[in-house]
C-alpha cells in the first residue's frame, strides 16, 4: 500500500484510503513506541531536513523524535540567525539545503502555501508541519488517530472544534480530514473568529457552546491567543472564558461524557479549565504520544512513494 502523493501538503482532498493507511500504520508504530527499545532501522541512510521558519517546540520535537526513532539522519534549521535573516529567499535556502542531498523536507512556515511553493523548487518529499493559517496535516491526522482509538471509528463521530477557527490551521486540517472520513463536524466560537463561508466546507456553525455540548462526542479545544484581543477580535479573556470556556460545570450539565482534545499549548482556565484538562475524559497527553506515531507513519509511507 502506498500513499497517492509523494508530499503531505494538507488534508484538502486527501483520499479516505490515504488517511486510513496513515492511521493504520501509526497503530503499528505506536506499538514500537511502547517497547523498551524504541528504535527501528526503517529510514536508515535517509536524511531529513527540518526547516522551521516559525517558532515551534512541540511539533519540532515530535518530528525529530519520529525521525530518530526511524533511524534517519536529521538536520535542523530554524530561521532565527540563519541566512533567511540575511535576506536569502526561501527558494535559494531550500535549493541550497537540497544540494546537500536531502531526501525529505519538513517545513513549518508562517505563510500559507509555502510547502506548495517548495514542491516546485525542490525534488525531495515535502511535509507540511504547519503553514500560516492554512493547514497542519500531521496534527489533524494525530487528532483523527486519537478519535479512532477512542471511538473505534470516525464515521458519524460528532466532533466540535471550539475557539479561534479563523486563525487556526489545526481547525482547517481537521475539518478537511474529518469530513472526508464521514464524521459530523461543527465549529463553535465568537462570530469574529469564524471565517467567512466556513459552512461551505460541510460544517455547522455555533456561537453558544451550551447549544452544541449535548450534541457532540468530542471537543477539540483550540488555544485562544491574546494577540487577537489586541486585534479587536474579542473583548477580554475573562469574557471569552465565561462564554466559550470549556469547564467542568458546563460539561456536568450534559448527560453523556465528552472526550476532550487540545493541540496545545493550553491556556489553563481560559479556553479550558484545569480540572477538565486533567480530567478523566481528557486525551490530551495521548494526542502527544500519538503525534510521534503518526509522524513516523507519514515519514515511512512517504519515503516509499516516488
Amino acid at each position: 500500500m502506498k500513499l497517492s502523493s509523494k508530499h503531505l501538503l494538507g488534508l484538502y482532498k486527501m483520499p479516505a484510503k490515504d488517511i486510513e493507511l496513515i492511521v493504520e500504520t501509526a497503530t503499528s508504530f505506536k506499538e514500537i513506541l511502547n517497547r523498551p527499545i524504541k528504535k527501528v532501522p526503517t529510514l536508515q541512510g535517509k536524511t531529513i531536513a527540518n526547516l522551521f521558519f516559525e517558532n515551534s517546540t512541540r511539533t519540532r520535537i515530535s518530528f525529530e523524535l519520529a525521525e530518530r526513532r526511524l533511524s534517519a539522519d536529521v538536520v535542523n534549521f530554524s530561521s532565527a540567525g540563519s541566512s533567511v535573516s540575511k535576506g536569502e529567499t526561501l527558494k535559494d535556502t531550500a535549493r541550497n539545503i537540497e544540494a546537500m542531498k536531502i531526501d525529505m523536507v519538513v517545513i513549518r512556515h508562517n505563510i500559507a502555501g509555502t510547502p506548495h511553493f517548495l514542491t516546485q523548487v525542490v525534488k525531495s518529499n515535502v511535509i507540511n508541519a504547519g503553514d500560516g493559517l492554512h493547514e497542519h496535516p500531521t496534527q489533524a491526522l494525530l487528532d483523527m488517530y486519537t478519535l479512532q482509538e477512542k471511538f473505534g471509528k470516525l464515521e458519524n463521530v460528532r466532533v466540535c472544534i471550539v475557539g479561534d477557527i479563523a486563525h487556526s490551521r489545526v481547525a482547517l486540517s481537521n475539518i478537511y480530514g474529518l469530513t472526508t472520513m464521514g464524521a459530523q463536524v461543527s465549529v463553535c466560537g465568537p462570530a469574529t473568529l469564524i471565517p467567512r463561508n466556513i459552512q461551505m466546507l460541510g460544517v455547522k456553525v455555533f456561537h453558544h457552546i451550551d447549544d452544541i455540548l449535548p450534541k457532540v462526542d468530542a471537543l477539540n479545544v483550540l488555544r485562544i491567543q491574546l494577540e487577537r484581543q489586541a486585534g479587536g477580535m474579542f473583548p477580554t479573556l475573562r469574557e471569552y472564558h465565561r462564554f466559550f470556556g470549556v469547564t467542568k460545570e458546563r460539561l456536568g450539565r450534559v448527560d453523556h461524557p465528552i472526550t476532550i482534545m487540545h493541540p496545545g499549548p493550553i491556556n489553563r482556565d481560559v479556553e479550558l479549565s484545569a480540572d477538565v484538562a486533567d480530567g478523566p475524559h481528557s486525551v490530551i497527553l495521548e494526542q502527544v504520544l500519538n503525534g510521534v506515531a503518526v509522524r513516523m507513519a507519514v515519514l515511512y509511507l512517504l519515503s516509499a512513494t516516488e
Partner: peptide, 15 residues
C-alpha cells in the same frame, strides 16, 4: 478575495 477560497486556503482576505 475574502470568502470560501480564502477560508479554505488560510490566506488573509480582502472583503
Amino acid at each position: 478575495n475574502e470568502g470560501f477560497v480564502s477560508t479554505s486556503l488560510g490566506l488573509p482576505g480582502i472583503p
